[in-house]
Structures are given as C-alpha cells and as structure tokens.
C-alpha cells in the first residue's frame, strides 16, 4: 500500500458511496445480485443499484436486521419497532408481522420458501405468502439464526447452546446442541455438518452434527461478531482479532490446528468478515474503517477502502461475488464493483 489515496483507489474508481450519518446495522444483497441494501440506525434502508443509493423509510426506530428475501429481488428487514418487513428491490414495503415492543433482532430466509424472524425467545417462521407457520420457543433470547444450505433446518443460537429445528416437522422437538455459556452469533458450514457459534468469552464453539464432536477455537482479544465460511467450507473466517482469523475445517481441523491469520499489522481490530462466494478470498472490515480483500492461499491483500470513515459494521458479497457492499458505525456506505473490466 502506498498511502491512503492508493488504499482508496478501488472505492474511488469502482465504487459508489454515500454518507448517511446513521449507524449501518446490517447489509445484504437481493438473491439476483442486482440491488444491495444497508439497514440504518435511523430506521431507513439505503438501497443501491449500479446507479446509486436511495433511501426507503422502513422502521420507526432503528433497523436492526437485514437479509435477502426468498424471492430473487427483495429483502427481509427487522427493527426495534417490532416490525418484520418484506422490502422489494424497488423499495415497496409489505409488513409480514408486527411484534409490539419486542425487537426483531435477526431475520433470514431460504429460497425454498421459508422466512424467519427472531423476536426475544421466539423464532417465528412464515411462508412466501407471509402466512405464519410456526412459533418456536427457546430457553432464552435468540442471538443468531441460520438456515442449512438446503433449507430443511434452521439453527438458533441462545444461552447454553443452539437449537436445530426441522422447518417442515410436525412435532417441533429441536435437536439441542449444548455448551454452557452465552452464544452470540452463529454460522452453518456449507456441507451442513458443522455449526459454529461465537461466545461472550472471546472464543468460538462448534459442533459436528454427524459425529457429535465438539470444537473449540480461542485466543481472541475481543468478541467475535462476524463469522463466515469460505466457498466450499475449507475455512471459517472470523472477526475479533487484529487480523482476519481463518480456521481450517479440512484435514481434521480446526481442533489442534493453528488458524491462518491475514491482513494484520496495524494493531486494529477486525470487526466484519465476508467470504467470497466463488473464490477462496475474504473481505474484511476493521475498527478504523479499513476494508480489504484478502486472497487466502496467496495471502495477498487488496485494499478496498482506506481507514477514516468509522468502524466497519456491515459487509456482504452479492451471490455471484461481483459486488461488495459495506457500511460503518458512523453511517458511511459503499457498493464496490469487482467484475473484470
């Protein structure tokens, strides 16, 4: 890197950006990859196609959660106004449900036809028409949410473990993955065999669903807020250290194997990670606002945005890996084009 100007070159030449002045709580892409959105602390969503950003009023309070909707061109959004919304790429909003004073803290969907919203201890499932399907109870508030790759099961993290629910099951008895302590984020491996959580005590915990084996990954100076499996599941990228920490999930790992560490040296915490959907590469955002793309095998680092625009608080790739969106705590948001020119 030669100076901050150079570190900003990608953003300058291939990005569109705007300063919204409100905390970017989450970012996501439509499934067709055409439009990205940032959920903002002032309750609006900032939607961007290739031409630029525009604002849509969504929540009365803060927008807290955002995910692709099950269709090709929409989003799901949750807010501290208790509303669970479907937001079309055009900006049109349909309320799926309203939960009063409780916050909608996590949302997710699977293209196969299921939408999920976590509200306190309950996980609410809806179908594509917006009809309520199930209310699933947990011993404490749900802190992380993910469907498996096939959309058959949904995992919810909570105090003392994770509950796995079969979406179509009539009985609604979850498989409980138990581990004492407070689990605060969750990821499901692409082969559906590993579920990993981040914990309050600066460590990760994981379960192999086939063998029932536990995995522990520790050594972080801060809490991991962001977890992302690489394409094919070879690595799990994580935030919470002054590097991008990648745990190997092949060859008997991660237990007993040292992690790969990328993009360190500045003494600044990594706050968000997002693995590229097509290549073994990971985008990472840092507490000083730096955003980089790191190639995992060559360990080459490509700067995307220079420090100075607030701690990176949201980061997401489009499904084809052509575009990246990121946002910061101070309200900067950008969409960057990575297609070959």
């Amino acid at each position: 890197m030669s100076g901050l100007g150079e570190a900003d070159r990608l953003l300058r030449e291939r990005g569109i950006s705007e300063h919204f002045g409100a905390f970017v709580a989450a970012a996501a892409w439509t499934r067709d990859g055409s439009v990205c959105a940032c959920a903002l602390g002032d309750g609006t969503l900032a939607l961007a196609d290739a031409a630029g950003f525009r604002r849509v009023a969504a929540h009365d309070g803060a927008a807290l959660a955002l995910a692709p909707d099950l269709g090709p061109a929409g989003f799901l959004s949750g807010g501290d106004d208790g509303r669970f919304l479907a937001v079309a790429a055009t900006g049109e909003i349909t309320e799926i449900a309203r939960f009063g004073l409780k916050w909608v803290e996590h949302v997710a969907s699977h293209a196969g036809g299921c939408r999920a919203a976590a509200v306190g201890k309950k996980l609410h499932l809806f179908d594509q028409t917006g009809r309520a399907q199930k209310q699933l109870d947990h011993p404490s508030a749900v802190t992380g949410l993910a469907f498996d790759a096939k959309g058959k099961r949904v995992a919810a993290a909570h105090y003392n473990g994770v509950s796995l629910w079969f979406v179509a099951s009539k009985s609604d008895n979850p498989r409980r993955l138990e581990w004492k302590g407070s689990h605060i984020a969750l990821a499901w491996s692409p082969d559906n065999d590993a579920v990993v959580t981040a914990m309050q005590e600066n460590a990760l915990h994981g379960w192999r669903l086939g063998s029932g084996e536990h995995m522990r990954m520790s050594g972080y100076p801060a809490k991991t807020q962001s977890l992302s499996f690489s394409r094919g599941g070879k690595f799990l990228a994580t935030s919470g250290a002054e590097t991008v920490v990648l745990w190997p999930f092949t060859g008997g790992g991660p237990t007993g194997k040292p992690p790969v560490e990328l993009a360190g040296g500045d003494g600044v915490l990594c706050t968000r990670v997002a693995c590229h959907p097509e290549h073994d590469a990971v985008a990472a955002g840092f507490a000083d606002g730096l955003v980089v793309l790191a190639d995992i095998s060559s360990e080459r680092i490509l700067p995307v945005a220079a420090p100075g625009r607030g701690a990176v608080s949201a980061l997401a790739w489009s499904a084809d890996g052509a575009n990246l969106v990121f946002g910061t705590e101070t309200g900067f948001a950008a969409r960057v084009d990575f297609t070959k020119r």
Binding site: F23, G61, D80, W103, S140
Partner: peptide
C-alpha cells in the same frame, strides 16, 4: 445477557 444486546441495539440510534 439481555442488556448486552439491548445496549448494543440502542447504540445504533
């Protein structure tokens, strides 16, 4: 645990 989440959420506005 609920306060850790709620204080974090409130910091967004």
């Amino acid at each position: 645990g609920d306060l850790i989440r709620i204080l974090g959420g409130l910091m967004k506005r």
